[in-house]
Amino acid sequence: MSQAEALAAPPALYTPHAAPRATDAAVELRLKSLHYGDFRAVRDVNLTIRRNAVTALIGPSGCGKSTVLRCINRMNDLVRGFRLDGEVRFRGRDIYDKAVDPVAVRRAIGMVFQQPNPFAMSVARNVTFGLKLNGVRDHLNERVEQALRGAALWDEVKDHLNKSALSLSGGQQQRLCIARAIATQPEVILMDEPCSAIDPIATLKIEELMTALKAKYTIVIVTHNLQQARRVADDTAFLYVDRSAGGRTGYLVESGPTAEFFANPREKPTQDYVAGAFG
C-alpha cells in the first residue's frame, strides 16, 4: 500500500471513539478531597470538561491545579501517600473504581508535561513508543508522519527521523511530546503548563496547535499564564488556595466559558486574580 492510500484509508485505530456521545462532557470531576499523606492538597472541585474543547485550569502557585490535572489520568497514583476522595467520570464510569486499571486510563487519556521529556531515542521511535505499547505494529511510518504533522513538527524533522530526539530544540521537543501523545489517538490530552519551559515563539506554535487539536481531542491545560488561557481556552476554571485552619488547600472558586469568565468574574478572589492583584 502506498503512503497516500494508507492515509486515505484510516486503519482501525482511527475510527471514532466508541465512548458514549450522549452528553457533551468528556470528563466529569467530582472531587471531595485529595491528600498527600496527611496534607490535604485540594478540596471541592466539581468540574465538567466539555468534549472537543480546551479547558484551562488557572490559579496561583500551590493551588493544586497540577494535582487536579494529574487526577484525570491517575498519574497521582505514582506518588506515595496520594489519596482521592470523590470520583472522576470518564466514558460513563468512575476511573477510580477498583475494577479500573490505571494503565488503561493513561492509554485513553494522554499527557504532555511541563518539561519536554522525549526519550533518549530517535524522533521516530519516540512517536512509535505509545503505538507499540498498544500493540500497533502496522503502518508505523505513516502513523509517525501523521502524528508529527498533527503536532506541526513534520516539516522540521522529516529529514532527521532517525536522529536523537535530544538534538531538537526545547520547543521542538515539546511538540514531539505532543506528537507522541496523539500518535495513539487518545480521547483526552492533558497538558501541564506545556509552555513554561520554552520560548515565546515556540509557545505561540503550541497554542495554535491546541486550537487545531480540539477538533479531534478534548484538551485540558494547566497554565499560570492568564493571557494564554484567554487565547486558547473555551472554558476556564479558577482554583485558589484556602489558608483558613492553618492549611494550604486548593479549591475550585468558579468556572465557565472563557469570555464570560474574564468579562464578569463572580467571586472576589477571581476578580482580584483576573485584575492582576496577585499571582
Binding site: 498519574m75 505514582l78 493513561r106 492509554r107 499527557m111 508535561f113 521529556n117 526519550f119 505509545g130 511530546c177
Partner: peptide, 10 residues
C-alpha cells in the same frame, strides 16, 4: 520525567 513520560503513555 522520563519515567513519568512512559507512565503517561500508558
Amino acid at each position: 520525567k522520563l519515567r513519568e513520560a512512559a507512565f503517561g503513555l500508558g
